[in-house]
């Protein structure tokens, strides 16, 4: 009897029979348009716990709370930008997966192109300088003789 009950319980769990309104379960907004907007905002916000996931992807507790907060803001009539600003006010630009271009992020945005530019410049200068540095060396007497043998003296253009 026991194994049967256990198997039934396992089946219930595996078929996703989660109790309604349980803690830890996202409650989507009733309006599909608003829910879609909330999901779009979720994808722009970085999870503070997992760091390289958006809160839309993350299973962290805090990410779920933030998802719910974004839904509430949007339900309450916030624009997407206002909902994002609400989270940024508390956690800073760090939570934005697409950080804004401003004084504190110049190095972040300009660093890679500047490094690429410098490296390209360096390689260019190196290649330009290298060519005249390696003039073709004149043939040695033995090489000249061998070349003559292979090509044949008579077939040289005059």
């Amino acid at each position: 009897m026991r194994p049967l009950l256990a198997a039934l319980a396992l089946m219930a769990i595996m078929t996703g029979a989660a109790p309604l309104g349980a803690i830890g379960v996202d409650v989507p907004l009733a309006d599909p348009v608003l829910e879609h907007r909330a999901r779009t905002v979720h994808k722009l916000l970085r999870c503070l716990v997992c760091q390289n996931q958006s809160i839309d992807d993350s299973n962290a507790d805090l990410a779920r709370d933030l998802r719910q907060i974004v839904r509430e803001r949007i339900q309450a009539g916030d624009s997407d930008q206002e909902a994002i600003a609400f989270v940024v006010a508390r956690y800073g630009d760090w939570v934005l997966l697409d950080p804004p271009f401003k004084a504190t992020t110049w190095a972040l945005w300009l660093g890679p192109p500047v490094v690429l530019l410098l490296a390209g410049l360096g390689v260019g200068i190196y290649l330009r300088r290298r060519r005249p540095l390696v003039p073709p060396s004149p043939l040695s007497a033995a090489e000249a003789a061998r070349l003559k043998r292979i090509v044949g003296a008579g077939r040289h253009p005059p």
Partner: peptide
Amino acid sequence: SIDWGVYG
């Protein structure tokens, strides 16, 4: 805590 910017 979220209003305080707490993340852990």
